[in-house]
Amino acid sequence: MSADQVFHSRSEGIPSEGVKDQYADGKAARTWNKFIGDSTQRTQNYKNFLIGLLRKHGCVSVLDIACGTGIDSMMLVDEGFKVVSVDASDKMLKHALKARWEKRKDAKYDEWIIEEANWETLPRDIQSFLPGTKFDAVICLGNSFAHLLDEYGDQRVQKMCLQNFAECLKPGGLLFIDHRNYDAMIDSGATPGHSIYYNCKYPVDIKTSVLVVRGKPELVALDYCIDTGEEGNGKSDFRLCYYPHKLDTFTKMLDKAFGSRAKHQIYADFKPLADVPVPGFYIHVMEKARN
């Protein structure tokens, strides 16, 4: 049974092929932009973690493969990185393109590249506008990868996409990829309303639903309610659906995609794994083998 037969994870009229655009109706994209705030509202822990590791490893070029509205990409551009930003959602990319236009007088933003791309065809998509390019780092953060559902029941597409991410990296390049602590969410049936990535200034309520098929969790639906306090249009509701990646399984998929010679470090809410008993997020940092 497909997840979409039980939970509608995308708007009517969106094709089922490829990575689902759950923001295609524009409503979720607009509300999500309010939820994440602007680039000045990123949590300092997140910024220190990401930029610290990028600089420690000498990274210059960064591919943001789930750029959404462009918030993380802008943070990296401001810090002097050469950034290419892609997303499968044209509705989300409109916000990123608008943000770049508003920064047109800042010379750093002249080299910020924003394009539409699909994870399933990512290396080919990148080569279509940047032939021969490989990156020092690829980032896929904010629980973005979990948007890709398991249509076939064997995670074949997810595995292929992870291999595509590795292919876009230079030898020694880094992949930053994360997922929520779905192990805990499945056990408790609840999701923390505050994200380690965002300093949202609005009250947020998240209702959690878990779809179990033949004893196996197949999908988690999060219904977001954000109260912006705006008269007549203060509350915004939208649903996003995610594949519930378990830590052990996801770790093994990454290791297989990158090969045995890759280095794999796991963090909990940007801290050493052992320091956080029940984290909200797991962050994986893969270092591609150098030869």
Rank of each mutant, 00 (worst) to 15 (best):
A262F: 01
K288R: 10
G70N: 05
A96T: 11
L222D: 06
I126C: 05
N33E: 15
D72E: 14
R10S: 08
A29T: 11
E115D: 13
M74T: 15
F281Y: 08
Q22K: 05
L175R: 01
D21N: 00
D78P: 05
E167S: 07
I14T: 13
N181Y: 03
A289W: 04
E230L: 04
E231Y: 04
S144F: 01
H264S: 13
G280W: 06
G26V: 08
N33D: 15
H179R: 02
Y198C: 13
P217Y: 01
R100M: 10
R156L: 11
L63T: 09
L254K: 01
Q163T: 10
D21F: 00
Y202G: 06
A221T: 10
L211T: 04
H57W: 08
Q163K: 10
H245S: 02
N291A: 07
W119P: 00
G234T: 10
P171G: 10
A3W: 10
L76D: 01
V278I: 11
Q163I: 08
E287F: 00
A289C: 11
V204D: 12
E167Y: 02
L174H: 10
V220R: 03
V157Q: 11
G142I: 02
Q127H: 12
V138E: 05
K91G: 11
G132T: 13
R104S: 14
E115F: 02
D125W: 01
S61M: 09
Y282K: 00
C200D: 13
D21Q: 00
G37V: 06
D78F: 00
M253G: 00
R55T: 14
K20E: 14
I283H: 03
K201D: 15
V212M: 12
K91C: 12
E218L: 02
L254H: 00
D205Y: 03
K105L: 09
D38Y: 04
H8S: 15
R104T: 13
K34L: 12
M1W: 12
K216Y: 10
S128L: 05
R104E: 15
Q265S: 10
V138L: 08
I51N: 13
G70H: 02
N33T: 15
M286W: 00
T249L: 09
K108H: 09
A29Y: 05
Y109K: 12
F35Q: 14
M1A: 14
I14C: 13
N118P: 11
I266T: 11
D237F: 04
K256M: 12
S2A: 13
N33M: 07
Q22T: 08
C225M: 09
M160F: 00
P279T: 09
F49R: 01
D187N: 07
G52M: 07
K170R: 11
D78M: 03
G189H: 08
S188L: 06
G70C: 09
D21G: 00
Q163M: 07
Y46R: 08
D125Q: 07
D154P: 07
D154A: 08
P217K: 08
L174Q: 09
D87R: 03
Y152T: 14
L53V: 12
